[in-house]
Design a protein around this nucleic acid. Structure first.
Lengths: 339, 339
DNA sequence: ATGAAAGCGCTAACAT
DNA sequence: ATGTTAGCGCTTTCAT
């Protein structure tokens, strides 16, 4: 290409990357030559030389879970805006596959890794190791270790929004359904649930805490056990995920429990379908676009940081989206929104 | 690393890539050294040398559309099984963004590109250009040009399954709802719809063909215009996509049209939520796993092919999944399945 | 079976 | 403002 333009390799490089001033006419000649040859540069060679690939790896527990689909979409947009590419990895909720994916991303010299780890304890070793070698920030689910960077939603605040709203609309008892306690989302949401129900004087029985999976099937089973009439029924079911809540709604329909009259139900994540199920689902929205852009920002900061520095934790404000599975409240409050 | 093991760089390379026989003891020493140093190789350097990156780029119109989410998931699995990584790109239904994404993937020297192009005509130039430079196979939506490789479902056969089933259950008229005619899925499904309704003697009025977008909102609007009582009503609505069908179902609910008693509705793609809407949606399932593995196979074949060779087209068999939005048929047939 | 040396395509000193 | 040169980390001849 340089030959075609009649200049040296380095001049051509300078034109293509605009890294140094080049004579206007020379530059034009180079650009023309590049166009004629359809030359666009080889980013592999550039990456080798600059030890920067302009790629980011992302690892999620399941791309099929609509919340993560949304997060992936947000990341893809944010990266595209910066001219970077996204390596997408699905760990299938398996820490071993997750470790392989991390290994592969490191080997490919990604500029950073964004991950929602699948297991609070079993994901730890691979995660730490990866974080030692490259900028790494966790999204949503968190695994704690010294220096860990994390961005997510304030789960305690989310539970406060949900429970205060329910309380104001007259609800005095609540059940909680989530996945097993192997991830931070479940533990922090449960902690928030416990704290705020107690503070508000709402009744919670131990049989009303049901921990299974983040899935519709799971939610349906949980709903069934909660509503089968063999024990006292709560006035509301707070779910740690919209899929679970949709499952609970199915159980309600099957068992003839009227929502929201006999039972109020809330979800979490505000996935697209929350607005389309019947009755439509009240949920807590997470600011995924914001999470993605903060994550990219943190990756850049992390590149120029000392290893002994403390990790950064960014808790973003959740937003309560009111729909038909909850009754109208006595009065409105901050952070709520009726659609 | 080679130093640490006390061998030459080339010997170390031979051990790590198992490219040539190496003395057992030497090999062991190299492996130990690699372990101790946590050395795993630099795939950028390898890629530069071998001009093979073990990466595949995938471009879809919208990752948020559940059908493409499923396709991405299938591709990710298939690639992981072969030790390759996936560059995920979302073209946001925009041919210009799509062209940028293709350009970026080419520059990154991907081993192949898998794409579902967003626009039958406006995607063509960039697609052709990319296909000239690297193996490229189209999935689902097709753009025609000489030598184009494509894998998808047999849309005519899908329409045959749907319409013959409806006909057997007594339906004698049908409407069709899809996106605008800017992609092959719509045109081929519509062609199949026309052919089979005619063959079976089913009534189709021109006002019953509604073309908008692949979205729930769109489907709801289409449903509304079809059912608002201002014209004759079809006995069934065949949708080119599950999102559209879900929208039509919402319109039915709002207008008090009972499904399937007064109106039968079918979707396309068999997304997860098809099973969870009420009433649950009869749909045509696409074999996404099969599509992904065939796509990877084609990419490999394409790498060692002459430019003047004709393109390969693989039409896979669709599968009709019967649920509650269609009435029970008089009798069962091949290719159908009740869940 | 092992080592020495060249080179993939690029960029960043270092000249001029 | 432009050219010359070295080298990123690997694989692959070509020797031995």
């Amino acid at each position: 290409m340089a030959l075609r333009a009649g200049v040296s390799e380095s001049t051509a490089s300078r034109v293509m990357s605009a890294s140094r001033p080049v004579g206007r006419e020379t530059a034009a000649r180079v650009r023309r030559a590049a166009n004629e040859l359809g030359y666009t540069g080889n980013s592999i060679a550039r990456a080798l030389r600059k030890s920067r690939t302009d790629t980011v790896g992302m690892v999620v527990p399941s791309i099929l879970n609509p919340f993560f689909t949304g997060l992936v979409d947000s990341m893809e947009r944010a990266l595209h805006a910066e001219g970077k590419q996204l390596f997408l990895c699905d760990s299938r909720q398996d820490p071993e596959i997750e470790a392989e994916q991390l290994q592969s991303l490191l080997q490919r010299q990604v500029d950073g890794i964004v991950i929602s780890a699948c297991d609070q304890t079993r994901s730890l070793p691979a995660l730490r190791a990866a974080a030692d070698l490259t900028p790494l920030v966790q999204l949503d689910r968190r695994v704690d270790f010294p220096g860990a960077d994390w961005i997510g939603v304030d789960d305690d605040e989310a539970m406060r929004l949900v429970l205060e709203f329910l309380h104001r609309s007259g609800v005095r008892s609540a059940a909680f359904v989530s996945s097993a306690m192997t991830n931070s989302s479940t533990s922090e949401r449960l902690a928030g649930f416990r704290r705020h129900t107690e503070r508000l004087g709402m009744e919670v029985r131990e049989g009303w805490i049901v921990l299974r999976d983040y899935s519709i099937e799971s939610g349906e089973l949980a709903g069934q056990s909660l509503l089968d009439g063999r024990g006292p029924r709560p006035q509301s079911v707070v779910c740690a995920d919209d899929l679970i809540a949709i499952g609970v709604l199915r159980a309600c329909r099957r068992l003839g429990v009227r929502v929201p009259d006999q039972l109020q139900v809330t979800g979490f994540d505000d996935i697209t379908f929350a607005d389309y199920v019947v009755p439509s689902l009240t949920s807590v929205a997470q600011p995924t676009d914001r999470m993605a852009s903060e994550a990219l920002h943190l990756l850049q900061v992390a590149s120029s940081r000392q290893p002994e520095d403390a990790g950064t934790r960014i808790s973003l404000a959740p937003r309560l989206v009111l729909r038909e599975t909850t009754a109208a409240a006595a009065r409105r409050d901050h952070g709520e929104e009726r659609r």
